[in-house]
Nucleic acid binder design. Structure first.
Lengths: 197, 197, 197, 197
DNA sequence: ACTTAAGCGAGACGGTACGTCGCGTCTTCTC
DNA sequence: GAGAAGACGCGACGTACCGTCTCGCTTAAGT
């Protein structure tokens, strides 16, 4: 099992494969994605796929990631000084994404894939989720300095207080995801995090 | 598509199929579960499976559910008067379950399945998750009457404040799930829910 | 394995089964005949078929035979004194039957069935073919008495001289089966059988 | 329905499939031949069979044909000048073949298959039966030139006069097939074909 | 006339084989 | 030497029928 020489890799094929994978999922759902279909649609031999990716899940994750990285990093988290507004902004944005059927389907597919394959899970965590949590923590740290958040609050838990409820509701479809809901979550979180009184 | 006559259904086969499915997942993981293996292990024709379940996922969900329903309701939620202790009890119990590799694998398989098939999702929600959320809300309602929780708090959100962070951490494997973590979550949640001061 | 009591046999079911079998073959060909289809079409339980016939081939053969026995014995072989004319009559009649697509298909199905199952073969031979050969031999015997056929000719072979070529051509589709052909065969056969000169 | 590229066809698989099919029929009879068994015995995927043959019948016919074509033409028909002896030779040889249980079974299977599938019928006719009839006609033509057979005899019918009775007796099992029988048939045929006297 | 057991319709069952799909590997030929 | 093309061995799919096996129901026979 010799590893191929990346220098020789065809950029045209790489792109074609990723975009074929993405389009196929968009059209028919992740469950119907097959390596053969990707190869056919991309005008590529199957071997070319297997040479560079370990599984079709990896191709798909790559496809999604390469797309989301074309954006300037997805969600931003401004620091206007108004913590409540800043957090509400992110959460509402996330709610909007989950309410877009296209993105919803993609996210669920990605999640399902990551459940079955720990490798993909870490990749997703590292490349999508991690950065989001990080910038959020940054914002909370800044709020700590401003005395809006208890100095001793564990920020790793704090971010989960924000994103956990949203994620829970999205994954389990217990109730609709709305902007009000996002705001309620922010409200609760801020109360939980506020300095001792 | 004629629906079979349930009156004639063989109880012996039903049981054999469910327990075969469960055992196979326990032994080799959900990814390797096949209808043929279930049929073989259960000593049953494939058609008998397809006659009564639409997919192997449905069989598996049924298997898990029928098992979890042999227990008299699984998790209980006592009302000792000490809200913090009561909640900490449930969350720690859940953390323990997620830390049991067997149950962890089952839950992830169940979750992955429910991502791909909304029907299963609702079934799981209705038969496993729903009851848990319900008893939790009951406990919180009792706490409201006792003045430990703000009277106007939206309890649907409140339960997500409790379970959301745990679920988030479990699903995304961002950090280890510990009893301390459970307690921290309870702490934050109680602070968020406490009556205005 | 107790043999069922024929006295209790339902005549209505028997008829329904035979005619369902016959019709199904007529409609879709023998290859697509199934026991389940016969049962369904006849409004009969499968067990009723298995109780009275050993195989679907047997049902079909029975169906054909029961039909052909409604006729007064099928082909007749008159003795007008004109041997050539009498034989030409039968052979032409047989040729006509083989040229009827319905009968052609039935005969081929019957033949195929008898190839796979020696039991059916003997039944067919006994109930359809045998009588034909017998009456033909009778006619030839009468011709022997009239001095038109060599006294020492082996009549078992003689009839095969008549039917063999026709059968050969029908089975193997080497050439079309026509009345002229029937007459040529009769001509050759008579020449082969004529008394020494 | 894209047709596969024959250039890429694996010769090794082709051979293995044909010989597996042949052996399986020899061992257990045509009725028990299955595509799965062929594939398993040949060490081949089922798809490889379906890629190149339309049905298991076609595989079997191919198997038989490819074997019979390894022989340099099978039956020969010498021209010794003695027509009776030459014809008796072929008919006796054919009788011998039909009396070999192995060949008998093969021939019946082949015949049954050709009854159900006209395509196979023509193939068999073209590759096995046709050549035999042709060399026989050649021999009779030579006999015509020698004045042993009527100049105006229709040779297509003549050959059926020879093979028809044998075939009839073999197929319908009315009487045993013996060398004497073969000779009797030749005798009758020669008498039928002899020039006017 | 009344049981009572057989035949019957229906159809679920354990199986075998079907013909198809997709996997991941391998081979051949091209650029 | 990477890539397009696609045949291959393999494993599983979901379906069609097989022949067997209960289920109630009906129906004729024998008390």
């Amino acid at each position: 099992m010799k590893t191929p020489n990346p220098a020789r890799r065809s950029e045209r094929s790489r792109r074609a494969i990723l975009s074929a994978a993405f389009d196929l999922v968009a059209e028919a759902g992740y469950a119907k994605l097959t390596v053969e279909a990707i190869a056919a649609r991309a005008g590529v031999g199957k071997q070319t796929i297997y040479r560079w990716w370990p599984s079709k899940g990896a191709v798909f994750v790559d496809a999604v990631l390469s797309l989301s990285e074309d954006d300037t990093g997805g969600l931003s988290l401004p620091d206007t000084g108004d913590l409540r507004a800043d957090l509400s902004g992110v959460l509402r944005a996330i709610v909007d994404e989950y309410n877009d059927p296209r993105l919803d389907a993609m996210s669920r597919a990605l999640t399902a894939e990551s459940l079955a394959d720990p490798t993909l899970n870490s990749e997703i965590t590292a490349r999508i989720l991690g950065p989001l949590l990080e910038v959020t923590k940054d914002r909370l740290r800044s709020a700590q300095r401003a005395g809006q958040v208890a100095a001793d609050a564990d920020l790793s838990v704090a971010v989960e207080l924000l994103y956990g409820p949203i994620y829970h509701r999205w994954m389990l479809r217990t109730h609709p995801l709305t902007h009000e809901y996002a705001d309620t979550v922010v409200e609760f979180a801020l109360r939980a995090l506020e300095p001792a009184h």
